[in-house]
Nucleic acid binder design. Structure first.
Lengths: 249, 249
DNA sequence: CGGTCTGTTGAAGGATTTCAACACTCGTGG
DNA sequence: CCACGAGTGTTGAAATCCTTCAACAGACCG
């Protein structure tokens, strides 16, 4: 077993031609809430979107900016987070291709309640808030579909609240690792690699703890061979053991 | 100033005739997401709902039950909460008349992710999940309206996560008091009375702390005359002072 | 007027944060 | 090509906020 730790993550380079009209159509069609549309309706919707790219670490919009666009991740991972006055970051959600974010507000401008950052290099489609609402109004199946997604996110947020108030930091980290595993996991020769750049600070911000505590716990997990981890990457070796950590005393 | 502390809350007795067809129509019309309907459409929707009553403290449904009904609070307050294995309760939301709860799932039964309890005596309207989805599909304005509400709840849940991970217990309690004040507050001779039965344990469960800590902090607030409180009731005297607690060091 | 539910207060103990110092990785420019 | 520096990860020790355990007081109900 090589101890050499070159980053095992996929190269995040984006080929610009990813966002030609045809590929956009294909991507839009893959998005859960557009799956009910036929090709013609999809084409109509497609014309209202415009594409943009951001490289890793760059901000897409910031908390407090006036919210006008609804966006969809086409490629890469987007991090949603909030900041305290003294600069501490709280990680709200981590999005993968097919998920929406940004403004879904009623007309009359609200402001973004969180900051969106490109976690890796990303490709984004966006549409004006106003236009999207007219799509929703003409197409109730899309509205219902987005409602379902939002309801699930609400349930998940409430689950997180539950965890924050009842579980120890160790269990919270075990849980978030399993959750990320389901969403971003990719089977490799040994274990399941999380296909996104993930620092100790990101983990800490997701579980509401300090970088140091997250580091200590990850070290322990690694010693017990549940995970393997290096600079900005994590692989899970033993899901069952992590589950056991959560249920244990 | 009388130190006598008889409960200043409104008598929670429900007159049964509250739920005659006419009154139901009136109540339904007041619910935010039905306001776009004309009288005829409202009547059609109304026929699909059925009414029920629960007295304070009784369970409406429990976490894990099969979820088939969507419900709307007509009168009183409903508490949504979750429980840990060892019985600790986490308060997820506190609902007032006009708010919906229960199942909003896709067909193919899911289970309730939380327990609903009558916080006071309550009157509830309910409708089958399946039927409600057909209402949504024929009436996109309702779907959009519910989507808006759910989006707001999601934002609010995320704000709570933010608070849980960055604020001290004292600040979290100050914050929840202000939030409850906006939702359930009623101006009285002195201060603003929260129009719902609210124990120290409820406050603790909302802010993710222990009953004792909540009690200590409420005592301090009362000593500093920001609030007045007795058995199962709280009145806020000085909102600005509570805000100051949140922003302070 | 006793029992139960709710609220209060003290003291000990524990989980986590904070402060501090150091090691490692990676990209960049000399 | 190597050295440097910034970003990231690790580890120890002290400090702190909060929980837990325990005992008791007051309010409400039958």
């Amino acid at each position: 077993m090589s101890q050499k730790r070159t980053t095992p993550l996929e190269s995040p380079s984006i080929k610009k031609h990813h966002c030609t009209v045809d590929v956009r159509m294909e991507k839009l069609g893959m998005i859960p809430f557009f799956q009910s549309l036929d090709r013609e309706a999809l084409q109509q919707v497609n014309e209202k979107f415009s594409a943009s790219h951001f490289s890793a670490g760059h901000s897409i919009y910031e908390e407090g900016d006036i919210a006008t666009l609804l966006r969809v991740v086409v490629y890469g991972a987007v991090k949603l987070s909030r900041f305290t006055k003294d600069g501490k970051e709280i990680l709200v959600d981590m999005l993968k291709p097919g998920e929406y974010f940004g403004s879904l507000n009623e007309l009359g401008e609200d402001r973004y309640s969180e900051t969106a950052t490109a976690q890796s290099d990303v490709c984004i489609l966006s549409i004006g808030n106003r236009e999207f609402r007219s799509v929703l109004n003409t197409n109730s199946s899309i509205a219902v579909s987005i409602l379902d997604i939002t309801t699930k996110k609400l349930t998940s947020a409430r689950e997180q609240i539950h965890h924050l108030t009842t579980l120890s930091v160790e269990k919270r980290i075990a849980h978030i690792l399993l959750k990320l595993c389901e969403k971003f996991g990719e089977k490799k020769t040994v274990g399941i690699l999380l296909q996104l750049p993930l620092s100790r600070k990101d983990l800490a911000d997701m579980t509401g703890t300090s970088t140091e505590t997250a580091s200590r716990i990850m070290s322990r997990f690694q010693q017990e061979e549940m995970i393997t981890s290096g600079r900005l990457w994590v692989a899970i070796n033993d899901k069952d053991a992590l589950s056991a950590v959560i249920s244990g005393t």
